[in-house]
Design a protein around this nucleic acid. Structure first.
Length: 434
DNA sequence: TCTGGGGTCCTAGGACCC
DNA sequence: TCTGGGGTCCTAGGACCC
């Protein structure tokens, strides 16, 4: 038997997470918002049926919901990350070989002669629901892109009971003809425009193009998708734990004008990036800072800039990443404008046991002491509470509550946040017996 | 008043080298 | 008159994903 891929996809994941602890919201329209309560990033089926589009700015919801029937939640990443972990644990414990793809999707793969996996995969929707309360859909096919398509059908049509397999050539052709080209994994908005003009409307149309033509128009990535739709496994999902760049960025609820305020935010973002670096046991060679004004308010003046600093030696210590970020910030800070967004990106990432020593100077011993100090600080913060120990310049002292993976910055709007039911003793579900 | 955040990969073009 | 050719590396920007 040739290899098969399954995609396990959580339905309306963030909304489903909120509903686990709010069963009264089943069958009612629910949405989850992005940071700052800015956009709608997850919608229940009922909200979708009301025509509310993905990514809608929340302040426009009245256009779709004049009667205020929709329940909105601010994003609660601590909750979503924990439930995601539980879903993946259930799949792993069912004996499947799992590759996480995103917070709400995982691939499972099968080879060999043994056919018994199929029953397990079929039972996943029921099993995951029973163990976690999260509804999932499963698609199975000979390539990941086809598995994604199968999953769409599983989600869309109740009769499938959450599981759909594209198991024959006839089924593949039927599925392709039913799927619009823009709904294919890997075909984005820009590609769709061009393809539509060329008369390509469905996935089936796309597969009828010649290999050379696809290669010419869409490059190697388009060709891979084309092959996948033909049932040939051509896309690999990187399962490596280690990221190649790490970005911490936020938009501010209120405009930031002073250097002091902005540098406190940048210090916070840099610190968070350094924590993420150490968590994956790596170090960065480059620290970049971005600052920008509100792109939707050009009347207030626009300015944005990025500055990158190459370190003499890869680092992960909080002190070094923060100091470097502040150095970069100083070089691009423009006092004439009001800032809406900032980001710190660390890149040029290497494993922390493969760091190149610099040829001259830079006092490697001092560095090594700072790295060790950071590890100790991480330890304290892990045991005694997030950001118990931090640098003086960071904002954290003014923080209101624990949040986004435990860290909330001031100047972030979250009016509708649910409790971190599963990751904070202080916010655990209360049950009242009457 | 109010518009997210975090990633990956590919490609074209420039710099530089011999 | 006539102005090489090929390789590598880096970077910025585009496109896509959830």
């Amino acid at each position: 038997m040739s290899k098969l891929y399954g995609l396990v996809d959580c339905n309306n994941f963030f909304v489903s997470c909120e509903r686990v602890f709010r069963p009264d919201l089943e069958r009612k329209p629910v949405v989850v918002l992005s940071n700052n309560d800015g956009c709608i990033v997850s919608r229940s089926n009922e909200a979708k049926e009301m025509g509310i589009p993905m990514g809608l700015p929340f302040f426009k919801i009245g256009d779709y919901d004049p009667l205020r029937r929709v329940t909105a939640f601010s994003s609660n990443y601590a909750l979503y990350a924990d439930l995601s972990r539980r879903v993946m644990l259930v799949i792993t414990e069912a004996g499947l070989d799992l590759t996480p793809y995103s917070i709400d999707e995982s691939f499972v793969s099968f080879g060999g002669e043994d056919d018994s996996f199929r029953e397990i995969v079929k039972s996943l929707p029921e099993l995951v629901m029973k163990c976690t309360g999260i509804p999932v859909s499963v698609g199975l096919a000979s390539s990941k892109t086809l598995a994604k398509l199968a999953c769409r059908f599983a989600k869309k049509y109740k009769g499938y009971n959450g599981f759909c397999e594209i198991s024959s050539e006839a089924a593949r052709l039927k599925a392709l003809s039913l799927i619009e080209i823009g709904d294919v994994w890997g075909i984005g908005r820009r590609r769709v425009e061009g393809l539509r003009k060329a008369g390509i409307k469905t996935a089936r149309d796309f597969t009828m193009m010649s290999e050379q033509q696809v290669r010419h128009v869409m490059g190697i990535t388009g060709l891979r998708t084309w092959r996948e739709l033909h049932g040939v496994d051509s896309i690999s999902v990187d399962n490596s734990e280690s990221k190649k760049s790490i970005c911490t960025s936020r938009s501010f609820a209120d405009m930031v004008t002073s250097y002091e305020q902005l540098s406190a935010h940048v210090a916070d973002f840099a610190s968070m990036s350094s924590v993420k670096l150490r968590q994956q046991h790596s170090a960065a060679n480059i620290v970049s800072v971005y600052i920008g004004t509100n792109v939707f308010r050009s009347d207030l003046g626009t300015y944005c800039n990025t500055e990158s600093v190459v370190l003499p030696m890869a680092a992960s210590s909080q002190m070094e990443i923060v100091n470097t970020a502040l150095f970069a910030l100083k070089r691009i800070f423009n006092p004439q404008v009001a800032y809406k967004k900032a980001a710190v990106i660390v890149s040029g990432i290497v494993s922390d046991n493969a760091i190149q020593q610099p040829l001259f100077g830079n006092d490697p011993e001092r560095r090594s002491r700072m790295e060790k100090l950071s590890v100790v600080i991480d330890d304290i913060n892990k045991n005694k509470g997030r950001d118990k120990v931090h640098l003086g310049i960071q904002r954290v002292g003014k923080m209101s509550q624990a949040d986004v993976d435990g860290v909330t910055l001031a100047n972030l709007r979250r009016e509708y946040k649910s409790p971190a039911y599963t990751t904070d003793w202080n916010e655990i579900l209360k049950v009242v017996a009457k």
